[in-house]
Amino acid sequence: MSTLDKSDVEKIAFLARLGIDEQDIPEYATNLSNILDLVEQLNSADTDEVKPMAHPLDSVQRLRTDVVTEVNDRENLQANAPEVEAGLFLVPRVVE
């Protein structure tokens, strides 16, 4: 049984930088605990000799030649940014 409490949910939410409303935390704790209970079933499977499967066809990462393929398209790409100035993305001050 994996039961997550309020402080677990707060900790995970901070790791994910994900704001959740205080009033919703108990419900998330219940939901997440239920999902983890469902996942407990995996422990019934003997996987000691099984290799983890990352790609359904067991393909390996393809490499390409190291040449420039994309053109600089900054203005177009930054058109979606909430705040830009002089070609830079703006965020709140990080270094005092």
Binding site: L4, V9, A13, A16, G19, I20, Y28, I35, L36
Partner: peptide, 18 residues
């Protein structure tokens, strides 16, 4: 992220992060 995502997406991000 808190304002932009709905409840199901948040649930899955939390489970995955955990």
């Amino acid at each position: 992220r808190g304002e932009g995502f709905g409840a199901e997406v948040k649930r899955r991000i939390l489970i995955g992060t955990y």
